[in-house]
Simulated scan of single mutants.
Amino acid sequence: MRPTFLYDGDCAFCTTCAGFLERHIPTSAEVLPWQYADLAALGVTQEQAEAAVQWIGAGHAAGPDAIARVLRDAGSYWRPLGAVLGAPPVRWLAWPVYRWIARHRDRMPGGTPACALPQAERPTPRPTNDPVTR
């Protein structure tokens, strides 16, 4: 089974980070917004997906642990970076930093005010063929 890396596709900051990952980090994982994933088939709840990025493959990891898995999976010089991120004491420090960034992602480069809203309060994007958005 090909690993999957889930991120919040409604968040501009998260989408920017996922785009960087897809362009520069040669992971074998499918990088996918959780909103378009079959969460039940992946064994992930919506609450888990909303709370942090997710790695589903040989095992399951979230947040900086998921990022460490992506880096290790990418191989080359990314592998040692993933090993460092996943090892104590860096791992212990990574979680508070990850939570801080997640809480302030609307202020991060590429972030928008919608990133600060809980999922249930975010505006629903209109389809491109909607006459109101033309």
Rank of each mutant, 00 (worst) to 15 (best):
R134M: 08
W34V: 04
A114V: 14
V90D: 07
G110S: 05
R134V: 01
W92K: 04
G86A: 07
Y7A: 05
E47Q: 15
T16F: 07
P109E: 10
H104G: 08
C11Y: 02
P125C: 02
A66K: 02
D38N: 15
D130K: 03
R134G: 12
F5V: 11
A58K: 14
M1E: 15
V132F: 00
Y7E: 04
W34R: 01
C17W: 15
S76C: 07
L93A: 11
A37L: 06
P89C: 08
I56T: 12
E47I: 10
Q119D: 14
V132S: 05
Y98V: 10
A87L: 08
A83Q: 15
W55H: 09
I56G: 04
P131Q: 05
P127I: 12
H24T: 13
L85H: 06
I67Y: 01
R2L: 11
H104E: 12
A49N: 03
F13A: 09
W95L: 12
T15M: 09
A66V: 03
P123W: 06
V90H: 01
L32Y: 00
R122M: 03
T112I: 01
R72E: 15
A40P: 08
P131G: 05
A41M: 13
P125V: 01
P89V: 08
A94Q: 12
Y7S: 05
I67E: 11
A62F: 00
L21N: 02
G86W: 06
A12I: 05
R122P: 07
M1V: 11
P26F: 08
E22A: 10
T124P: 04
L93H: 03
A120H: 13
L21M: 10
E22P: 02
Y77F: 11
T128M: 02
Y77M: 14
T45R: 12
D73W: 08
F5G: 06
Y7N: 05
L85D: 08
L6T: 06
D8N: 02
G19Y: 01
V84E: 06
L71S: 05
L93Y: 00
A114Y: 09
P89N: 11
A66R: 01
D130C: 02
G19S: 06
A114P: 11
V90I: 13
R122G: 03
W34E: 06
P26S: 09
A51R: 13
R105Q: 04
G43T: 12
Y36R: 15
E30L: 13
W55R: 09
M1I: 10
T45F: 03
W78R: 10
A52I: 05
P64D: 07
T4M: 04
A87I: 01
M1N: 12
W78V: 07
T124R: 15
C17I: 14
T27C: 06
A87P: 03
P123D: 03
F20W: 14
D106A: 02
P109R: 06
A94C: 06
W100D: 11
E22H: 00
R122W: 04
W92R: 11
T27D: 04
H104A: 10
T27K: 08
D106H: 14
T124H: 15
G57M: 06
V90N: 04
I25K: 05
V97L: 12
G63H: 06
P131R: 10
I25F: 03
E50G: 07
R72C: 12
D65S: 13
P89E: 09
R79H: 14
F20V: 05
E121I: 00
V84H: 01
P125S: 00
V97E: 09
A120V: 15
I101G: 07
Y77T: 15
G9S: 01
W92M: 07
T15Q: 14
A37S: 09
